[in-house]
Design a protein around this nucleic acid. Structure first.
Lengths: 200, 200
DNA sequence: AGCGAGGTAGAACGTTCGGTCTTGTCGTGC
DNA sequence: GCACGACAAGACCGAACGTTCTACCTCGCT
């Protein structure tokens, strides 16, 4: 799973490198920033970068891996901090709008990355697909516990992910406040659907 | 408005150039393809490209402008071919899923482009915002005629655009058929919302 | 004391980038 | 008949790309 399995163990320089890469890749894109930008900003020489990562692609994968871990932790925190199933879905939704509303928000790191790597065979593209599959499964699992029963929970999960994708994509192109409001409203609709359908 | 206002009039070579740029930019991204790829595939020399466009950026803007015209025509056709307001919304939605289901679908050209140009001041970014504003206004206008009255049609328009964005983003990452189904279902929900609220 | 891992510093590799320029050749309109 | 616009072909530019290299330093360990 770990994309940098064959590279060096953690170190101060490596952490600085990955942190800088995360910041720059997320805010400016991937193809448009070069190795030099990252090494300069991380105050590290090129040799150091290539000691910890096998190349730029490896650094990109490490960036996405870190983003993936962050989101998983964020979802886990939202879920563990709430007892009811519907409350868990709302907590996840709230964590999403928190991101959209935060200052440096530049959309979904994975959707942005996949826009630059359309080739389905490319490791970066694959990493995005894997993350998205996990998210869909997780959300669908939460919804299944809201509408306990044989409600069409798969469709509801896809609906919720579609709303999330739209909100994340538009969150840095429109007023984040309006996007958040629209998204939360949509989430309530999905919750209503799942509850109604399962009680029918 | 026209991004290539100061460049040459149409010609066979120019059309070939723009067509090739459209195909390649859309399917492979923008930053990752160079001038040489486009000129080679269009069977045109660099000199010819720079005779018709002031540079790569101008070509990108022409590409987006062409995509914008295409979508406007597509929406206009959907609207003009349907009498009822709700039918027009459904026709637009259908034209969207037609795109998602078509073979070479690679997501929204504008969302993909803006992922590569995060700087809000950049002309490419601005072109994307302009297109999106037009689309939101258009969709909101259609919804206003569905719920004739003072229904919260702005929120419904944002909701519909959010669904579209999510569908376009995921359409090339998941099963297009399921995405289309989910999207059309969501559109019906928006239509129901607008109709109910206005009749209340 | 000595060794190696991890780091800095910086030159250099070959390639590709976007962009300019020159030269020659068609075809059309004046 | 000839000048001009459109295009082909390709050399050329400076810069940036990702990558590799040598050389030196400085810790922590044994």
């Amino acid at each position: 799973m770990s994309p940098s399995a064959e590279t060096r163990p953690p170190s101060e320089a490596r952490a600085r490198l990955l942190g800088t890469a995360t910041k720059i890749f997320y805010s400016e894109g991937i193809h448009s920033v070069g190795i030099d930008r990252i090494t300069a900003e991380a105050q590290v020489t090129r040799a150091t970068l290539y000691r910890h990562f096998s190349g730029k692609e490896d650094l990109i994968l490490a960036y996405l891996d870190q983003a993936d871990r962050g989101i998983r932790a964020q979802v886990a925190a939202a879920v563990s901090g709430t007892p009811s199933a519907a409350g868990q879905v709302r907590a996840v939704a709230r964590s999403i709008v928190d991101g959209i509303r935060s200052p440096g928000f530049r959309g979904c790191a994975f959707l942005n990355a996949v826009a630059e790597y359309p080739d389905p065979e490319h490791p970066v593209h694959r990493a995005v697909l894997a993350h998205r599959q996990w998210f869909l499964d997780t959300v669908t699992g939460l919804l299944a516990r809201v509408g306990e029963g044989r409600a069409p929970v798969d469709a509801a999960g896809r609906h919720l992910v579609m709303l999330r994708d739209g909100a994340m994509a538009a969150g840095c192109l429109f007023d984040p406040e309006l996007i958040s409001e629209t998204f939360l409203h949509g989430v309530e609709g999905v919750l209503r659907d799942v509850s109604e359908k399962s009680s029918a």
